[in-house]
Write a protein that binds this DNA or RNA. Structure first.
Lengths: 252, 252
DNA sequence: TTCTATCATTGAACGGTGTTCAGCCACAAG
DNA sequence: CTTGTGGCTGAACACCGTTCAATGATAGAA
C-alpha cells in the first residue's frame, strides 16, 4: 500500500515479483464491483467509469473482459438465478411450490437496490438460464396445466414479480434516506391526500386508499400471487375429471 | 422557407411583423416532437437535443417549458390515457369490460415504438390520471370483488399489460427492419434451436417451445388475460351466495 | 539468464448526453 | 417612446459509452 508510494532507491534491484501487485481483473470481480456501485449509488449512477473506479482501474480496462455495458447488466441479471434450487415437482403441492419460486424471486430482486430496473427488459432465455425455466415449467406440468397455459404462465408470473417489485422499490427510492419518523409523516400525508379527494367523484379510490397504505407489501404481494395461482389452477386438467381443458375465450 | 435564406436588400425596411415567424413553443408541441423522435429513432436515441432539433430550436429552449427529461417522459406517459372512455360498470359484464380496458392499454402501448419502455417505471397516480383509476376500480367493484383484491388487481393488470407488451416489443426491436421472408427464417431458427435442446433434460421446454413461436401474440395475451380474470372472479362475492370472501392464503 | 511474444492495462480521444446560465431580442404594456 | 418581461440563444460544465495506439508486465523459449 504505502510502500508503492515511495520512490525506488537506486540500489534496490527490481524484484522478480514485487508483490501480488494487482489482483487480475475477471468478469466476476467486475460484476461484484458493479453491485457495490449499484447498492451505493443506484441505477442512474451505475456507469462503467464508476465500476472501474471501484476496482481502482481505468475504464477501458473493463472492455477487455466485458463487451459493453449491456453485457455487464446481463451478467448482473444472471446472478438472480445463482444458487436457485427448484424442488422436485410435487403434483399435490405445485401451487405452493410455484409461490415459493415467486417469493424467492422477489426476495432476490429486493436484495440489491434498483435490481428490478436491471432485471426489467431481460428475458431468461440465455443458455445458462434455460434449466431454471425448464424446472418451473415442470411445476406447472405437475399441476396438470395444459400446454398453452404453461406457455404464458411463466411470463405472467415473472412480469408480476418484476412489476410489483419495481413499484415497491420506486417508492423506497423516492423516500430513501428518511428515518422511520419522517416516513410515518409521509405515509400520513399520502393517506390524507387520498382521503381529501372528493368522495362523490372518487368513492372507490377513497375507500381503497387506506388499504393500499395500511397493508404491508408482503400481504399485497401474497394476495396477487394467490389471484394468479387461482387463475392458473382453474385451467388444471384434473386427473379425475379430464376434458374441459378450458380454451381461452370461454368464461369461467 | 427559402425566402428567409436570402439576404435582406438595403431598401427593404424591416417589417413590423415579418411573418408569423415562429410558432411558439408549448408543452404539447414538445411532446409531439418527442413522439416523432421516439417513433423514428427509438428510446435509446430519444434525447432532449434530438427533440429540440425536431422543433428547429436549441436544446435549452425546451427547459423553459419542461423541467427535465423525466418530466417530458411523464408527459408522454400521460398521453396513454388521453381519450380513454371507460364504460359505465355493468355487473353482468365486468369481466369483458376489464378485458377491454387491458386490450386498449396494449393497443396504445404498441402504437408508438418503445412506448412500453417509456411507460415502465411510471405509476398512474398523477391527479389527471386518478379519474381513470377510479373508473377501473368501479368495474372491479361492480364485479363484487372485495376491497383488498381491488387494491392489488390494478397493479396485477397493469404490470401484465406493460410486461407483456414490453417483451413483445423487445422482440420486434431486435428484428426491426427485416422483411417478412427473413423473419420467417429467424422464426425457423428459433424454433430449431429449441427443438435441438436435449429432449431428456428439457422435455417441457421442447414441447412448449413450438407453442411460444407458433401462437400469435394476440392469442397469448388473451390467454394471460383470461387467467387473471378467472383468478379475480374466484374472489367475487356472489350476490346470491355471500360470505366466503376468500382470504389470501386459503387455497381454492 | 536473456530475449521475445503476448496480452492486460493505460491514457487520450471522439461524439454524444442532461442541465444551467448570462445575455439577447421581440413584443406588450405603460 | 420607453420599459419591462419572458421566450430563446449560445456557450459551458460535468458527465456518459466506446475505441485505439502505446505501454507495461508476465510467461515461455532460447
Amino acid at each position: 500500500m504505502s510502500q508503492s508510494d515511495m520512490p525506488t532507491p537506486p540500489w534496490e534491484r527490481p524484484r522478480k515479483r514485487p508483490a501480488p501487485a494487482r489482483v487480475p481483473l475477471t468478469r466476476e470481480r467486475i460484476v461484484d464491483a458493479a453491485f457495490v456501485v449499484l447498492d451505493r449509488d443506484g441505477y442512474e449512477r451505475l456507469s462503467m467509469r464508476q465500476v472501474a473506479a471501484e476496482l481502482g482501474v481505468v475504464v477501458s480496462a473493463l472492455y477487455v473482459h466485458v463487451n459493453s455495458k449491456d453485457e455487464l447488466l446481463e451478467l448482473m441479471y444472471n446472478t438472480l438465478f445463482d444458487d436457485i434450487e427448484l424442488p422436485e415437482p410435487d403434483p399435490g403441492n405445485w401451487q405452493e411450490q410455484v409461490k415459493d419460486f415467486a417469493r424467492g424471486g422477489r426476495r432476490r430482486l429486493l436484495a440489491h437496490r434498483d435490481m428490478a430496473r436491471v432485471s426489467m427488459g431481460h428475458v431468461p432465455f440465455t443458455p445458462e438460464l434455460l434449466p431454471h425455466v425448464e424446472k418451473l415449467f415442470a411445476l406447472f406440468r405437475a399441476g396438470g396445466l395444459p400446454a398453452p397455459v404453461i406457455a404464458i404462465a411463466g411470463d405472467l408470473l415473472s412480469t408480476y414479480m418484476e412489476g410489483f417489485t419495481m413499484e415497491e422499490s420506486m417508492w423506497a427510492e423516492r423516500y430513501r434516506g428518511m428515518d422511520a419518523k419522517s416516513w410515518e409523516t409521509i405515509r400520513d400525508e399520502i393517506q390524507q391526500y387520498f382521503s381529501s379527494l372528493p368522495q362523490d367523484r372518487f368513492p372507490n379510490l377513497v375507500s381503497i386508499a387506506e388499504l393500499m397504505v395500511d397493508e404491508s407489501n408482503d400481504y399485497r404481494f401474497e394476495l396477487g400471487l394467490d389471484i394468479i395461482i387461482r387463475g392458473l389452477a382453474s385451467y388444471a386438467e384434473k386427473p379425475d375429471h379430464p376434458g374441459q381443458p378450458a380454451e381461452p375465450g370461454i368464461e369461467a
